[in-house]
């Protein structure tokens, strides 16, 4: 589904990603872990097509297409979804209006008719109960005055509504208490199928108790320095990141 080859990217003239290689198949869950500042959000932004991040080398293929040439909206329409680490507030815009615009632009891209109001509201109801989100939150302006946890839950709700092929969850667990974490993880698990894939970006092992990854990768200084299965996450939980830093920095310097 997603093939990243030797990806280099820079922002504000500074090289952040220094040769990422990663392959993700349908039905898989990958966790990307790593200390703060290692480039996890940068990777997510590059995949989503954020303008200020410049790809200097490498390739990214998504569902057989080179997506580096696509606009952010076309990547989204192809089925790429990013749950933001810091979701933005859009005053005066209801979730209803926002999601309807999004859904219909995606449908238009695929040559489908706009979804009528009845079906749209039905889908809203369904997905709200799936991710256990309160109608009251949905009625408010998008993310405006939401708590950190509410914003994260709203991201998962949007993901449920848009049914992406590949979802990247950027630190969706941070700022969540244990109940909210369970609810968010439940939502993600329910949305999982053999046709879609998930990248879970986190620096705590905690979330991975609920969303069980098939692979775990450690990102450090812009490179994937270690890959393994769930046990790698456990090891990181026990030992912290320092042993990896020593390993890598030892080699590099």
């Amino acid at each position: 589904m997603l093939k990243i080859k030797n990806l280099h990217a820079s922002v504000a003239g500074q090289q952040i990603l220094k040769g990422i290689n990663l392959e993700i198949k349908a039905g898989e869950v990958h966790a990307i872990m790593g200390p703060n500042g290692s480039g996890k959000s940068t990777l997510a932004s590059v995949l989503a097509g954020r303008e200020e991040y410049e790809v200097t080398e490498g390739e990214v293929e998504f569902l057989g297409k080179n997506i580096l040439d696509l606009s952010p909206e076309d990547r989204a329409r192809e089925g790429l979804f990013l749950a933001f680490q810091y979701p933005v507030e859009i005053p005066g815009v209801s979730s209803n209006n926002f999601l309807r615009t999004a859904l219909n632009q995606i449908r238009q891209y695929k040559g489908l008719e706009p979804m009528d109001a009845v079906h749209f509201l039905k889908r809203m109801k369904e997905k709200m109960s799936l991710v256990e989100i309160d109608q009251k939150l949905i009625n408010r302006s998008l993310n405006e005055g939401f708590s950190g946890g509410e914003k994260k839950r709203n991201e998962i709700f949007q993901m449920a509504m848009l049914e992406p092929k590949l979802a990247i969850l950027d630190e969706t667990d941070s700022g969540l208490d244990i109940d909210a974490l369970r609810i968010v993880a439940n939502g993600v698990n329910k949305l999982k199928s053999k046709d879609n894939a998930t990248i879970v970006v986190t620096h705590y092992q905690r979330l991975l108790d609920y969303i069980v990854p098939d692979f775990v990768h450690v990102l450090y200084k812009g490179r994937i320095v270690k890959s393994g299965d769930k046990s790698l996450a456990m090891e990181l939980e026990d030992k912290g990141y320092d042993w990896i830093k020593v390993d890598v920095d030892g080699v590099v310097s």
């Binding site: 909206e73 989204a76 979804f81 815009v93 926002f98 302006s141």
Partner: peptide
């Protein structure tokens, strides 16, 4: 704000319309 909309499949023109009408 515009990138957030783009990431959901909304093009910039529609994103500006949404944001401005919300405002």
């Amino acid at each position: 704000q515009i990138f957030y909309c783009n990431q959901r499949g909304i093009d910039t023109e529609n994103a500006v319309a949404l944001i401005v009408n919300g405002y």
